[in-house]
Amino acid sequence: MKRDASVREVMDREFVGVSEGDDLRETAELMLAEGVDSAVVLRGADPVGVVTERDALAALVGADGETPTAAEAMTDAVPTVSPEMTVAEAADELSAGSTQRALVSEGGEPLGMLTERDLLTASPFARTAADPAATDRERAVAGVTAGRGESASEPAADRGGESRFEDQSLCEACGSLSRELSTFNGQLLCPDCRDI
C-alpha cells in the first residue's frame, strides 16, 4: 500500500457496539460470536468507552455474584482517530496512547475501528511476496505461490504438469480452498465471501 494511505482506506468499517447497561456476559458472548476482540460502549450514539477481551475477563473473574455491566468493565478513554489521517499519523497516535485499537470517528460519529493489525497490513515496511522472509499468508495475499515467485493464477500445466496445491489457501470466512484470496476487512476471503 502507498505510504500516504489514509485511515479510511485501511480501517474496518464494522464494529460491535453495546450499551453501558448491557450485561457483560452477553457482551462477551457477542464479541465471541462476531469474532472481535473489543466492543465500543455507546451512550445513545456517543462512544463512551471500549470493552476489550482483557477488560471482560478481568471483570468477570473479579465479579462477586452479579454480572457486571459493560460500563463497569470498560476502559473510559476512547482513543479516536480521523478517517483522513495517514496511516503513519494513526500509528503515532496508537503508539503515543499505548493502545492496540482506536475508534475512527468523524464529527463525533463512529465510522469503524482501526487496529494494530490494520496498520501492520498497510505498513510500507510490510514484507512483499518476493521477499524470501515473507510468510505463506503474505504470499497468498499478494497472489504469489509460496516460495516460487509464480502468479497464483498461472495454470498447473504451465508448471510442467505438476499438480500442486501451493498456490491455494483457505478462506478465513467459509474455509474453502481458493486461488483467488484477497484481504477484505482484515481477513483473507474468497470471491464468494467478499461479495456477501
Rank of each mutant, 00 (worst) to 15 (best):
T52P: 00
D92T: 11
D92V: 09
P83Y: 06
A91S: 14
E89G: 11
P68M: 08
A88P: 13
L60V: 15
L57Y: 07
T75W: 11
V81I: 03
T52G: 02
A58S: 12
D76Q: 11
E72F: 01
L94Q: 08
D76G: 03
V78K: 08
L60I: 12
A56Q: 06
G62C: 08
E72Q: 10
P79C: 07
T52V: 05
M74N: 05
L60S: 11
T52F: 06
T86A: 09
P79F: 10
L60W: 14
E84L: 15
P79W: 06
T80S: 01
T69D: 03
A59C: 01
V61M: 14
A63L: 10
R54C: 07
E72H: 04
S95G: 13
E66H: 11
P83Q: 05
T52S: 02
L94H: 10
R54Q: 10
E72Y: 04
A90L: 07
E53P: 11
V61Y: 14
E89P: 01
T75R: 06
D92R: 15
E89A: 03
T75V: 13
L60D: 10
P68A: 02
R54H: 15
E66N: 15
P79L: 15
T86Y: 11
A73I: 03
S82A: 09
A56N: 07
P79R: 10
G65I: 04
S82R: 11
V61C: 08
E89N: 11
P68R: 05
T69E: 01
A88D: 13
T67N: 09
V61G: 08
A91M: 14
A70T: 02
T75Q: 09
A88M: 15
T67Y: 06
P79G: 09
A71Q: 03
D76K: 06
T75K: 04
A77Q: 05
V61K: 12
A96T: 11
A70Q: 02
D76T: 07
P68V: 00
A90D: 14
V78S: 07
D92I: 09
E84N: 14
G65M: 00
P83N: 09
P83L: 11
A70N: 00
V78T: 02
E72M: 02
V87C: 00
S82N: 13
D76E: 14
A70M: 13
V87I: 01
A56C: 12
L60H: 15
A91Q: 00
E72C: 01
M74F: 03
A59L: 02
A71H: 02
E89W: 07
S95T: 10
A88H: 13
D76F: 13
A91Y: 08
A58H: 12
P68L: 00
R54P: 06
T67V: 15
E53W: 06
D64P: 05
A77K: 10
E89C: 10
A71I: 05
P68C: 09
